[in-house]
């Protein structure tokens, strides 16, 4: 049976009819085509599906969309700015990931970027331990993490300039 859901995604309001067992990740990807969040493990272990709900980063693969009536979601798509000509400007975090070579296959990247965005929102000047803690639940099979930590450092520097 479908039920109504009012939800805000990347500052846009949606009034939807959803199946009761739809996960937030499935709603985002399959229904609304926000394909930034990825399904890696589907068990909340890898971090690729992370999104921000009312300021708090969570795993969208293990949340039912039905739980989120009235909530506001930010996906990686919501971090960019688009001007009136349709030009997309990436966020400082995204730029730093590119500059530091922290993106290889790219599958895990939206999760790392969302975790970094949420970290900066709660702690504008994070130390090494804070960064490690914030990213500890995210898996990357390509980079070996070093370039990802460099990217977060660089983004923090740019942000605090």
């Amino acid at each position: 049976m479908s039920i109504p859901l009012n939800i805000t995604i990347n500052n846009q309001s949606y009034s939807l009819e959803i199946e009761e067992d739809t996960t937030l990740l499935s709603l985002l990807r399959d229904t609304l085509h926000f394909t930034g969040p990825k399904e890696g493990c589907g068990n909340g272990e890898c971090g690729a599906c992370s999104v921000i709900v009312d300021g708090i980063p969570v795993r969208s693969c293990i949340i039912l969309a039905a739980e989120l009536e009235g909530k506001s979601i930010t996906t990686i798509e919501g971090l960019t700015q688009t001007d009136e000509k349709g030009n997309v400007e990436l966020s400082e975090i995204q730029k730093s990931f590119i500059d530091e070579g922290a993106v290889q296959c790219g599958f895990c990247t939206p999760g790392f970027v969302i975790a970094t965005e949420a970290l900066f929102n709660r702690n504008p000047n994070p130390g090494k331990e804070d960064i490690e803690e914030a990213l500890s639940g995210h898996l990357c099979r390509c980079t070996g993490y070093k370039s990802i930590f460099s990217a977060v450092d660089k983004a923090a520097e740019r942000k605090n300039k």
Binding site: G44, G47, S50, P57, V58, I62, I63, G137
Partner: peptide
């Protein structure tokens, strides 16, 4: 416990 995102839920 888990990781930051898991602890949030």
């Amino acid at each position: 416990f888990g990781c930051y995102e898991i602890r949030n839920r």
